[in-house]
Design a protein around this nucleic acid. Structure first.
Length: 511
RNA sequence: GCGGAAGUAGCUCAAUUGGUAGAGCUCCAGCCUUCCAAGCUGGAGGUUGCGGGUUCGAGACCCGUCUUCCGCUCCA
């Protein structure tokens, strides 16, 4: 799929009521989108598929719904407060972005290396070399030391005062250059806090600052013991959760791929320390199976193993999907060790351990995390499903070949013409079926046009009532993908449609 | 954030050098009664993203701003 088709897909999402830009009448809000009438149905179906495969089909996985607001210390323990607020600076020539603190620290390290070189040189030159003496008397060494101390003090003061202009001035004064362009053409230093904050309570002071969660996982970790005890859970067990998370992304783009407000579907699986390799491998395969059960071309998915690991992980990979703009991360599977629970134990002072009767000992469980972006899954499904077809007769049609179980609307009911009592029969059929699944009714325009309208939103079946129906109690059922029609009895409709649109068939393949 | 491109009706796009904002599709009301978007009649829909400037006159030129897309970076 090329760039043009992606553009068409984005237009299609708007025109057929899947996704609107947020606050569009006010020129929109950057990187925030609303799900529309059909999009909401599709999104709910994806969430349901995930939830049922995780919670309903695993006796040892339970689901929770933690609040978006959490105690601020949560984010200190998780590392988000420190890791998500770096002072950043760009080099205008190479367009490369750096952490300002790292640039300065590297500069200091360079000077320190020079000192060591002086010491080494001197050690070779003099016999009976007194290193201590040399360090405290040599003019060059002293000069270098003075420099590093001066920079370090300035830098510390600047950070404490949150004085970003001073941080930039240090970079300028130190004549630090960009390793790529070699230039000193720097932008201002900016603080990017990736967490949104707000004030709790009517009195706003610093102590009342709370954050909108940047990931749902922490809601699971802080409830680990509550769930384990009240659910009488035995390790290994999992806690699943879907919900909104918020990140103040510096660059947020590519439609709904990277949004400031997005929804995650996460499952944290708690295991005995030492078994993480085997469980990591298990969930890696299990998650790919879940994706493949949807029947989307397997060549569009691949694993991407992380070589450089985050400080808390001992293994990590992504499931990547081939979006119209290339292979991108759709889901992450991480072996998170006991990092989160251990930190929460430290910060809260509460023991977050599990007594293992088999080992007859207590430990902090290790964790395997599976974390998928619901919005990204939505976009993956849409881009895999969107097809602009050329038919044999030369005409064209746009069809969303969504997995029938996830399609927003399962069946559309049409009277061939809107008279002779046909609309009445159509409505009667619809009113029966609507208790089973989402159905719609349409009597406007020629039946061909109505078929195409349903193709465009991915409805698997169209049911047409004609004059013969009055005599034989049969209708035409038309398949979205093959466009083939079949004449069936009205009382067979339910079983035919159910067979095709039931989640059950996919769920059986998924686990 | 930096660089590049763009923004005209719900959608896709026109509008000569700066000279009265248009078409197709969609939508609505009817006619026709048709099994794969194509018949007929009528209708609605716009402060050309927004704000300034140049000009007798700006959709077009200039400045600012917002939004989207592409590249750099991180993530779900």
């Amino acid at each position: 799929m090329n760039e043009d088709v992606f553009k068409n897909l984005v237009s299609h999402c708007k025109e057929y009521g899947f996704i609107f830009q947020s606050s569009e009448i006010y020129d929109g809000l950057s990187a925030v989108y609303d799900y529309a009438q059909n999009g909401t149905l599709l999104k709910n179906n994806i969430r349901q598929y995930w939830w049922q495969s995780m919670v309903q089909l695993h006796e040892n996985i339970v689901g929770i719904d933690a609040a978006i607001f959490m105690h601020p210390t949560t984010w200190k323990a998780s590392g988000h407060v420190d890791a998500f607020s770096d002072p950043l600076i760009d080099n205008k020539d190479s367009k490369k972005r750096y952490r300002a603190d790292v640039l300065i620290e590297e500069h200091v390290a360079k000077i320190e290396a020079k000192i060591e070189k002086e010491v080494e040189k001197a050690a070779k030159r003099f016999e009976n070399f007194d290193e201590k003496m040399f360090r405290s008397t040599n003019a060059r060494v002293l000069e270098y030391q003075k420099q590093t101390e001066a920079i370090n003090t300035r830098f510390k003061t600047a950070l404490n005062d949150n004085n970003l202009a001073e941080v930039k001035q240090i970079i300028i004064d130190c004549e630090i250059t960009c390793p790529i362009s070699g230039s000193r053409n720097w932008t201002d230093v900016r603080q990017f806090n990736l967490m949104f904050d707000t004030k709790l309570g009517s009195v706003s002071d610093d102590s009342s600052t709370i954050y909108l969660r940047p990931e749902t996982a922490q809601g699971i970790f802080v409830n680990f013991l509550n769930v384990q005890k009240t659910g009488r859970m035995k390790i290994p067990f999992g806690i699943a959760q879907t919900g909104k998370a918020f990140r103040n992304e510096i660059v947020a783009r590519q439609f709904i791929f990277r949004m400031r407000e997005f929804e995650q579907m996460e499952m944290q699986f708690f295991i005995r320390p030492g078994t993480q390799k085997q469980w990591y491998e298990h969930w890696k395969q299990a998650r790919m199976k879940w994706h493949n059960a949807l029947g989307i071309d397997e060549k569009k998915k691949r694993f991407h193993d992380h070589i450089k690991l985050a400080h808390y992980a001992d293994a990590a990979c992504d499931i990547e999907f081939e979006f119209p703009f290339g292979f991108k991360e759709l889901e992450g599977i991480h072996s998170r060790t006991d990092f989160d629970l251990r930190n929460h134990e430290q910060y809260s002072g509460k023991k977050l351990q599990y007594f293992d009767p088999e080992l007859n000992q207590s430990y902090i469980p290790y964790v395997i995390e599976t974390s998928i972006g619901l919005d990204r899954m939505f976009l993956a499904l849409m881009s895999a499903a969107y097809k602009e077809e050329k038919l044999e007769d030369g005409s064209e049609r746009t069809v969303l070949a969504l997995p029938p179980a996830l399609a927003p609307i399962k069946a559309a009911v049409f009277p061939l013409v809107k008279k002779d009592g046909l609309p009445e029969i159509a409505e009667k059929i619809m009113n029966e079926l609507k208790f089973e699944y989402h159905v719609t009714y349409d009597e406007k325009d020629t039946v061909g046009k109505r078929y195409r309208r349903q193709d465009a939103i991915g409805t698997p079946y169209c049911i047409t009532i004609d004059h013969d129906t009055l005599n034989d109690q049969c209708v035409t059922i038309r398949d979205r993908d093959t466009m083939k029609q079949e004449r069936v009895a009205i009382d067979k409709l339910h079983s035919i449609i159910t067979e095709k649109v039931s989640l059950k068939n996919i769920l059986k393949k998924a686990i």
